[in-house]
Design a protein around this nucleic acid. Structure first.
Lengths: 186, 186
DNA sequence: AGAAACATGTAATCGGTTACATGATTAT
DNA sequence: ATAATCATGTAACCGATTACATGTTTCT
């Protein structure tokens, strides 16, 4: 999903400024699965205005740049509808954390404990965050997405809690066997 | 994690060619959480050879380009160790699927059913795939990563199965209420 | 006093993808 | 026959990130 489609989607629900779009992507349920920076949002909005997919109204403000509130045009809606009906690209879940754990046997016991504990703390905070946001008034779409985020964070957390010992036990063996080191098997 | 570190990691376990690295990233447990294309792997390997992090031995072959089998050098190992000890970037999970479901109320019932059924089929295939790969002989790291993939795919699958009705019921309501259409609330 | 929120925009850079180039062997 | 696997490499392109530029108000 490119930044243009993302903006179009958010604007299909309500009119918003570029700044507000960024905030929604940081804080909303979508925050966990979609991302875009100011440096991509503002140019996308400008370009889509040229293409007639969105239009904006300027609200004058003191002390700040004038706020540009964008709304989607009928053409924009049509383009977005096509995006919703077209093929959906597969998820891409990149995890440096899991990459690091792949090489568990090269980690010191302290490092292992550190990264795992940090991760668990992260999951807990994330879960608290999402549950706080999740007011009961949300419509089905956002509600579903937030719930999905909770489901997978919880699954990841439980898995880590229940299986960390498989990584930590090995650590003990390595410590126990002294300085034999050398490259382990695949 | 950049491509260089990824290659270094795989080479820290055993010597491999660029082609084999690509295959491991497609098929191994890491396949779900790490990615790199030939167009980035080959240049990375060349550059790391120049930097003395890896070295290669050429195996002559007929009918194909000579195979270059890379192995990690002590300096490469040191660099990789540093990467393992440095800060771990947060996961980035991008999902066009969830983006689309965010706008559930703009989807036709047929489309909704289609995307959900496709997704469930995808989860099932993916799970079969991972379980097939997951020989019992794997070392703790890879075993953990594969298990993690299974855990989150299963969680996602269950969540979708158990909550798809929240999206589909709304669809019925829309159908029932006729052609009232118009923009829904946030 | 200082940080964070509000608000938009541009330019340089960059890592990575896609497509191209080449071509035999093996499995379906 | 045709597709897939094996095998490396380059070049063009591209979307996006990061940093820069500017400046007030409000919260801590």
């Amino acid at each position: 999903m490119d930044v243009r489609t993302i903006c179009l989607g958010l604007l299909s629900v309500a009119e918003r400024s570029g700044y507000e779009i960024k905030k929604l992507l940081e804080e909303g349920p979508l925050g966990n699965f979609v991302d875009a920076s100011f440096g991509s949002i503002y140019p996308a909005l400008t370009r889509m205005t040229e293409d007639g997919l969105v239009e904006f109204r300027t609200e004058e403000q003191e002390g700040r740049p004038d706020k540009k509130t964008y709304s989607i045009t009928p053409r924009g809606r049509a383009v977005f509808r096509e995006a919703l009906e077209g093929p959906i690209a597969p998820d891409r879940h990149r995890s440096d954390f899991l990459f690091v754990l792949m090489f568990a046997d090269q980690l010191s016991p302290e490092r292992m404990t550190e990264v795992i504990d940090e991760r668990l703390a992260f999951y807990e905070e994330k879960l608290r965050e999402i549950r706080a946001e999740l007011g009961d008034g949300a419509s089905p779409g956002p509600q579903f997405v937030a719930g999905h985020a909770i489901a997978i964070f919880e699954a990841a957390k439980s898995y880590l809690e229940e299986h960390r010992h498989t990584l930590e036990e090995q650590q003990n063996q390595r410590s126990a066997s002294g300085m034999m080191a050398a490259a382990p098997a695949d």
